[in-house]
Design a protein around this nucleic acid. Structure first.
Lengths: 190, 190
DNA sequence: GTCTATATTCCGATAGAC
DNA sequence: GTCTATCGGAATATAGAC
């Protein structure tokens, strides 16, 4: 059959990214992806030899996304607060989709993953934490933020508030996430 | 054969509680449990008809544990800070075991679980959050704590710092968890 | 690039012996 | 209460046709 869609690989990544945030890595199958794209599971194997390769592709996509986001924010002229809020917004949308963040999802399955994937997860977490830390430092320098912890510690506090915030919100409802979101912004403003 | 151990059901629960925190609900099997207890998977089915029944049993066990812990702390004469630190200690030990907390674990798998289990998870989360909130209120009344958020919001901040703290720590190392733990205590002290 | 068909392995679960 | 034996189904994956 002629290529139905030259971006099938990208479509598989898109579906996979949704499934991993919605159900978790060990809970979705190639069949879920092939059904969503109306193809056979063998076709998915053509684009990603095995499930671990797919997970690696998904993580690479997130790495690229965050690098791109970092560059865009850097050249945006945004205040530090606006940059932080752009970051927070990524978590807020998750609560509308019954999803948790990619980092929380792979953290839960971490012990079931091969070493090569664990390394990539570490890269992703380091990248995201450093982005937040850098924004916090900038905001403090500019007098926008007045938190008393180190920028690194404050970044850890924010990251954990957001990551587990979307997890809790899945169980107890979105209002708890909103309380967390507003409080963490008050915290950094000091 | 004569009963090898009259507490086999309790042993299954114990192994199950470890597996769910170490690998996640969808990543462990009855075979993992039967191997750990040197029996056949059919024997596990005798004690817990299906995997969902086992998960329900595990959640009931945690509910009982937390209720017991609440009663013990109530009659302990501890300061609010000491009570909070007893709670935090439960999370600290997880980082030594490559485990995440039960709430984070089931939050990740939440969308794959039947309604009856979801209800029990909500009960567990509500119980734990109320325990923390109550301790925070008590500490504020006694002049031990000086946080500015509502007790409920502060409890949410602490819970999310701890839950995602052990998740991050699994990826980036225990030192990040320690930074979070110390900072959140400073926060409530105000 | 996608298909059919199939191999393999594992999982959850049950029947029936002991 | 635990065993052996087995079933049905699903998941990962591969071979080879188109």
């Amino acid at each position: 059959m002629a290529p139905r869609n030259i971006d099938t690989k990208q479509e598989i990544l898109r579906i996979g990214m949704d499934l991993i945030k919605r159900y978790g890595y060990n809970a979705f199958s190639y069949a879920d992806i092939s059904k969503a794209l109306d193809m056979k599971n063998a076709a998915v194997h053509y684009h990603f030899r095995g499930k671990e390769d797919l997970l690696t592709g998904i993580l690479d996509q997130y790495l690229n996304d965050y690098v791109l986001m970092g560059k865009q924010l850097q050249g945006s002229g945004f205040t530090a607060l606006q940059k932080l809020e752009k970051f927070i917004e990524r978590y807020s949308v998750l609560t509308e989709m019954e999803c948790i963040c990619i980092i929380g999802s792979v953290a839960s399955d971490f012990n079931t993953l091969p070493e090569s994937v664990k390394v990539k997860i570490k890269e992703l977490v380091s990248l995201v934490l450093q982005m937040v830390e850098k924004t916090l430092q900038e905001g403090k320098k500019r007098g926008e933020f007045h938190f008393t912890e180190s920028a690194k510690t404050q970044a850890l506090l924010i990251m954990t508030n957001l990551a587990a915030g979307v997890q809790l919100s899945r169980i107890t409802g979105k209002s708890d996430y909103e309380l967390i979101r507003k409080a963490l912004v008050r915290q950094v403003k000091g």
